[in-house]
Amino acid sequence: MANPKRVWFPHASYHITSRGNRKADIFYDPSDRYYYLELLAQNKQSYPFHLHAYCLMTNHVHLLIETIDHPPGIFMKELHSKYAMYFNKKYDFVGHLFQGPYKAELQGDINAMLQVSRYIHLNPCRANIASSPEEYPWSSYPLYLSKRPPSTLITTSTLLSYFKDKEEYDSFVKLPIKTTSGHPEIG
């Protein structure tokens, strides 16, 4: 069965996720994550896009990407193909690293993007591997709070422009999540 055609237009924003095959780990050590980020930066140079948020978990990734002139399929296929070749060679594996093609959920507006950035940045906390999002080193969250100039990989200015300052964004991300009718809500 063919994969459904993704909706794309210039400046479309997507929450992209990809998981290891059979939920297996796709990162074994820090050098794997550094290499993934290096490949992501190379793809950003070849096929410009804005990376608004990311989180590299052990067995999956989250990316919040705004395209410019290229659909995400072009750079995601290249990114994951190169990373899978690196991983399989390094660990002497064969076969698929990722569980099928990546998933890309189109974000309708800035409110959706803000909620997804929050979701991405809280992922390590929900997985109980960090008590606060700034403690997790494989996420863009520390870059949102940094006093240093932003990295060339991540674009923080778009999302931060909806807040008075970085502290207000930090408060937004850390708002408690209430549950009503089994669905999370921000309160």
Rank of each mutant, 00 (worst) to 15 (best):
G108E: 15
H50L: 04
L175H: 01
S117V: 06
I177C: 02
Y36D: 06
H121G: 03
P150G: 11
S140I: 08
K164P: 01
I129R: 03
E78W: 06
C55I: 10
S46V: 05
K44Q: 15
C125T: 03
L159V: 09
K103G: 10
T180I: 14
G182S: 13
S157C: 04
G108V: 01
S13Y: 01
D69I: 00
A24M: 09
A84H: 12
Q42V: 09
E105P: 10
N88H: 12
S131L: 11
L40E: 02
H70Y: 10
A112F: 12
S171H: 10
P137V: 03
R118L: 06
A41T: 09
G108Q: 13
F9V: 04
E134G: 03
K103W: 05
Y144E: 02
L106F: 14
L79T: 15
Y54V: 11
T152K: 15
N111I: 05
C125S: 00
A12Y: 05
N43L: 06
A24Q: 12
E135L: 15
H15W: 05
S140M: 10
L114D: 02
Y14G: 00
S139A: 13
Y35W: 07
T152R: 15
S46T: 00
P142Q: 08
P137L: 15
H121A: 01
N59I: 09
H70N: 12
I74H: 00
F163V: 08
L106C: 11
K166H: 12
F163A: 11
R6Y: 11
H52D: 08
K178T: 09
T58L: 07
M113F: 11
Y144D: 03
G100I: 05
L79S: 07
I120Y: 10
F87R: 12
F49H: 12
M1L: 06
S117R: 12
S131F: 07
T180D: 12
A12N: 05
K178I: 09
A53M: 07
L175C: 04
Q42K: 14
W8Q: 06
T156Y: 14
D92W: 14
K89P: 07
K164N: 07
L143E: 03
R118M: 04
A24I: 04
N21P: 00
L63Q: 02
S171C: 05
G73W: 02
T152L: 13
Y35L: 07
N21G: 01
P71I: 04
S171L: 05
S81E: 14
I68Y: 07
F49I: 03
P137M: 13
I120P: 07
Y144K: 13
L79C: 13
A112G: 12
L106S: 09
E167R: 15
T155C: 14
D29S: 04
A112D: 08
P48M: 00
T17R: 03
S146K: 01
L106Q: 08
P101T: 14
L40C: 08
D170H: 15
K103A: 13
F27N: 03
M113K: 14
G182M: 09
I65P: 11
Y35V: 11
H52Q: 12
L143Q: 08
P10C: 04
E185C: 03
L51S: 12
L39Q: 07
L39F: 07
Q107K: 10
F93D: 01
N21K: 10
H52M: 15
K23W: 06
P142F: 14
